[in-house]
Design a binder for these strands. Structure first.
Lengths: 239, 239
DNA sequence: TCAATATATTTTCTCGAGATTTTAGACAAT
DNA sequence: ATTGTCTAAAATCTCGAGAAAATATATTGA
């Protein structure tokens, strides 16, 4: 973690310490649904799975509280943060608020390096989407990474470290929802066209159009989750 | 911590565990400037000051990372989050973005209980401001608490837990800046009139006017910090 | 005097075990 | 059958000590 905790992309660096290592693996497992939402996280069990001491694992769990992926309750241990449709709507709407503002700022003050970064990220993402359309297996993970990179590149010229910090947290949260709903609704809809339009409007410095497209783009993910069966979030149904 | 980590106001509850206790005291000390920005936080020293074991104190430090009051760096321990004018401007602008949106939502969907809570909070704040004007000593802390309570009451009807969560973090950050600059610039300007106007516009459900006043209200704190001597944030000057 | 290397000290990180609290189960009473 | 109490088990929280790393100090050579 370099100068400020807010500047640091939490997955970029490789773990310098056992705590960070456990933190990263635990985070991935939570986002991927290995540990179900609401599930109790018992230190005694997990310390074997992740091969660290109890204290070390507790610290990793504490770090995950920062990402709001884990909730700690007084004298009653840790728990995977629960999910709900209302929460996902909240995440999505707040993401729109922050991400459009950050995009506006970036368009206003972004320089050549910013443009170059977007072009590069878009190119990488397009390739992944092409491979995805060709039904190549195992490219979803790659797409996830590049999709995130594209979205971060778009707003990377925003002067606001705080907005980018919060955006990162929310994106991570929504990624968790997407992973969980992925089984039912693959990344079907023509998402590439949306990215293309977003890409062009941004480079054309058309803030109004770019933010409008971005808003629709983010909001569209709401439909997928809304179409889920009612018992999905209670955990009673079998999936 | 009840249902969701985001719903919990971190200072309301009394500590159920040693970690929480150390966390709360440590947080207060950082906000009040007892531990200067950028200062190294050595576990061996602090564990005596706060009367807990080393592991316990580390956990408290980790919790403070969530509030972005402490930064952790790989194998090099903990440090009080640094401050800068640019950071404070960022905090302030982001606060405006989030708090105005939350206020808009509250005005749109707030019910009677929301109104009642605002009336009560405003009353309590007014009394404190009156006492402050009468030069009563030791009322600044009380004012801080009630000012925060008033601002939270205003947006308490916002359906967005995430916005409220982020708002709380940012408010806490700005409180730190205010405390540090308090010595030079007391809460002079007629802040009560601003609160009064904000109060009235909100209860009148005039979202445009209310958010406009709130924006000015928050942005005005920027001036105080901008007037600080240039060497203030480097820590070279004596204060 | 300065730079570079080597040593010593400090600090962080990590683990395992004991104390406290919560949770689960058995049993009795209404 | 349900409620309540008591006991047993499990889990969390806490601490101190040892291993690893980073920092400060001393030494050597140009």
């Amino acid at each position: 973690m370099s100068e400020n905790a807010l500047t640091q992309a939490p997955e970029a660096l490789e773990p310098k310490t056992l705590v960070e290592g456990a933190y990263q693996r635990l985070r991935r497992d939570i986002i991927e649904g290995v540990h179900a939402p609401g599930e109790k996280l018992r230190v005694e069990h997990l310390k074997d799975r992740y091969d660290v001491g109890a204290g070390t694992l507790r610290e990793a769990l504490l770090l995950l509280v920062t990402d709001a992926l884990v909730v700690a309750q007084g004298q009653r241990g840790f728990r995977v943060a629960p999910i709900s449709i209302a929460d996902f709507e909240d995440i999505t709407r707040t993401r729109v608020l922050l991400e459009t503002e950050a995009l506006r700022q970036s368009i206003a003050s972004g320089g050549e390096e910013w443009e170059a970064a977007i072009v590069a990220a878009f190119h990488r993402l397009s390739r992944a989407e092409q491979r995805l359309a060709d039904h190549d297996v195992g490219t979803t993970q790659e797409w996830e990474v590049r999709n995130r990179a594209f979205h971060e590149a778009l707003i990377s010229a925003s002067g606001s470290r705080w907005i980018r910090h919060f955006q990162r947290i929310l994106y991570q949260q929504s990624e968790r929802y997407r992973r969980i709903s992925l089984f039912r609704q693959p990344i079907a809809r023509d998402i590439h066209a949306e990215h293309q339009a977003l890409f062009e409007a941004t480079l054309a410095r058309d803030a109004t159009r770019a933010t409008s497209i971005l808003t629709e783009h983010i909001l569209r993910t709401l439909d997928a989750v809304r179409r889920m069966p009612a018992d999905f979030f209670t955990g009673k149904g079998k999936h």
